[in-house]
Each structure stands twice: as structure tokens, then as C-alpha cells.
């Protein structure tokens, strides 16, 4: 048990902080500890979690990507246009188109980084501007409200009427999110390629001497993020029921902060799917709790910042320092 706690310090620290916040909120508000609220949290965090697990793979491989959120905007827009062109489509074709477009954009990042040896943050800041600039240039910022019905119809997978007459529901974005999370987990922990990504991120030169194909690693990592970003983009268009070219602009930093909070190392080689999901949830729960508590919105940012600091501090301090009795047990 102790070994498990030690090797997953970040995850346990986050869980502890989340548990503490949840306990406080359950006691101080009537509505936090309810099915409806839990489902709301999942429904509204889905898109960010899909982005986050994609970004996690790139961070593990030692890269960073600033362009994925505007990339997702490009995918949204182009997908909507293609769907209009082929006259409708459906969820399968929609996800296929969005995923492939996303992979293309990710592959372009990987190409720049691998072929020209540009540092990933510089390359993706450039593509961030290129993708967004192209999108604004060609669309003139015009939004698309006329989307196919299958895309904008809400899909409720589970619904339950609560005692007070409100409805708790799980919607399609949650299912897609669960599939993306599971796929990423399988990919990075249960496949050889996934393990090679860790090795490559931790020590690229070592990995190269070991015979790992460096180029392939870059393309796989950025392609995976591209695919996730594409899917997240389509899902955002699904629940927003519109495609607004700058709707996702600025999302990249929120997601990056959450993933790093979840224990992914910016230098590569470290990070877990669980930590990254917890990172997103911690921020979502904090925001949700502040609204439920009726805290003055003027204090929101201050509190979110403080909670991030607490979580980071906890995960960086060894667990034994915080819990002296465990050290006692070792003696």
C-alpha cells in the first residue's frame, strides 16, 4: 500500500484534495452531493478531459502543444463544411472526418518538429497562429448555426428524475470521453509503442540508441493528440449546437494547466491518465463548488489559484513528511 502511495504521489494528493473539497461542499451545500450535480460535472468536463488525455500523450513524449485547441476549431469548421457538402452524414462519418483532420493537423506539427528540429513549443506557437489565422481569414469569423440534426440533437444515454423533479442525465459527450480515456490508458500503459513513448520522453538520446524510431514517436504522439482534439472539437460543436470559430481559443492553457496539475512532467517521461483526469476534475469541481456555495464571483480566480497551489505543494512533498505515522510504521 505504502509503495503504491509513493509511486502515485500526485494522484493521491489530488484525490485527497478533491475528497476534502467534496466533503466540505457536501456539508455546506444541499445540492453538491447529488446525482444531478455529479452528472453535470461529467457532462461539462467531458470536452476538457478528451483534450487533456490527448495532450498527456504529447507531454509524456517530451513535447508540448499550444495549437491543439485552435486546431480543434479548424477541425470543427471544416468538418461542418464537409458534412454539409456530403449532405448530412452521421456520428460515424462525423467522428471519422474530425479524427482524421485532427491527425493531419497533429502530423503537421510532428513534421515541423522532427524534420526541422524545431523545439515543440516554438513550432506549435507558430502553428497555433497559422491555424487560427487561416481559420479567421477564410471564414471571416462567420459562425455556422445550420448544422445537421444528428449533430445538434441531444443524445441522453441515461436519465433519472430526482425527487425534486429535476432531471439527472448522462449525455453522449460523457460516453465519448470514457472511450477516449480508456483508449489512451490502454495505449500508453499496455502497448509497446506506449511504453516506448515514456522512454523516448524521458531520454530521447537513450531511446534512439536503443533502436526506437524517433520520428515515429513524434508522429504518434502528436497524431494522437490531433485525433483527440478533433473528436473534442466535434463534441463541443455537438453540445454548443453551433460552430463559432473562436469558441475554443484560449482553451489550451486551461487544459495544459490541468494536465500538469495531474502530474505530467513538462520535460517528458512522466504522467498518468488518472492524474490528468483528476487534474481536470479538480478545477471543474472547484468552479462548481464556488457557484453552489454562492461565493462572490469577484473571489473566484483567487480561490482557484490557491487550490492549485495546495494540490501542487502536496504532490511535491513526500508523503512521509505529511503523514509522520507512516514513517513510524516503517521503523
Amino acid at each position: 500500500m505504502r509503495k503504491l502511495v509513493q509511486s502515485h504521489a500526485t494522484e493521491f494528493a489530488l484525490l485527497a484534495v478533491i475528497a476534502a473539497i467534496c466533503a466540505v461542499l457536501s456539508l455546506t451545500t444541499d445540492s453538491f452531493f447529488s446525482l444531478g450535480n455529479a452528472f453535470d460535472l461529467l457532462n461539462t468536463s467531458s470536452v476538457n478531459i478528451i483534450f487533456a488525455v490527448g495532450l498527456l500523450v504529447v507531454l509524456i513524449a517530451g513535447g508540448i502543444d499550444i495549437s491543439f485547441a485552435v486546431g480543434a476549431s479548424v477541425v470543427q469548421y471544416v468538418t461542418a463544411l464537409i458534412l454539409g457538402y456530403i449532405g448530412g452524414g452521421g456520428w460515424m462519418s462525423g467522428l471519422l472526418i474530425a479524427g482524421s483532420l485532427g491527425i493531419l493537423l497533429g502530423a503537421f506539427n510532428a513534421f515541423l518538429i522532427h524534420r526541422f528540429r524545431i523545439i515543440s513549443i516554438v513550432a506549435t506557437i507558430a502553428t497555433f497562429n497559422i491555424y487560427f489565422g487561416l481559420l479567421m481569414f477564410f471564414t471571416q469569423g462567420v459562425s455556422i448555426y445550420d448544422l445537421p440534426d444528428w449533430l445538434t440533437d441531444r443524445v441522453v444515454l441515461f436519465e433519472h428524475e430526482m425527487a425534486d423533479g429535476t432531471w439527472a442525465e448522462i449525455t453522449l459527450p460523457v460516453l465519448v470521453m470514457v472511450i477516449c480515456v480508456a483508449a489512451t490508458w490502454l495505449f500508453i500503459t499496455r502497448t509497446t509503442t506506449g511504453r516506448q513513448l515514456y522512454a523516448f520522453g524521458d531520454n530521447p538520446e537513450g531511446a534512439r540508441r536503443f533502436g526506437i524510431n524517433i520520428g515515429a514517436m513524434q508522429f504518434i504522439a502528436f497524431g494522437w493528440l490531433g485525433m483527440m482534439a478533433g473528436i473534442a472539437g466535434l463534441i463541443q460543436a455537438h453540445y454548443a449546437q453551433e460552430v463559432v470559430p473562436n469558441a475554443l481559443y484560449g482553451r489550451e492553457l486551461d487544459v495544459l494547466a490541468a494536465v500538469v496539475l495531474g502530474g505530467a512532467r513538462l520535460g517528458g517521461g512522466k504522467g498518468s491518465v488518472l492524474g490528468c483526469v483528476l487534474g481536470v476534475l479538480l478545477i471543474a469541481i472547484t468552479q462548481n463548488g464556488l457557484n453552489l456555495l454562492g461565493v462572490s464571483p469577484f473571489a473566484f480566480k483567487m480561490i482557484v489559484g490557491a487550490i492549485i497551489l495546495v494540490a501542487i505543494t502536496l504532490s511535491n512533498t513526500s508523503i512521509e513528511k505529511l503523514l509522520p505515522f507512516m514513517r513510524g510504521a516503517r521503523r
Binding site: 451545500t29 444531478g36 429535476t166 462548481n288 457557484n291 454562492g294
Partner: peptide, 26 residues
């Protein structure tokens, strides 16, 4: 309820804040 919320330039934030407030205030 709750003074005022600075979310109305962002459709996602407006949606999630509205959901939270509906839960918090029956």
C-alpha cells in the same frame, strides 16, 4: 442570488454556471 457572474462572453462557462446555479437554488 450570488451578486453577479462574469461569464457571459463565453457560451460554455455561461452554460455550466447556469447549471450550477439551478442546482444551488431550487
Amino acid at each position: 442570488v450570488g451578486e453577479r457572474y462574469g461569464v457571459a462572453e463565453d457560451v460554455d462557462k455561461s452554460r455550466s454556471t447556469a447549471l450550477d446555479l439551478i442546482s444551488a437554488h431550487p
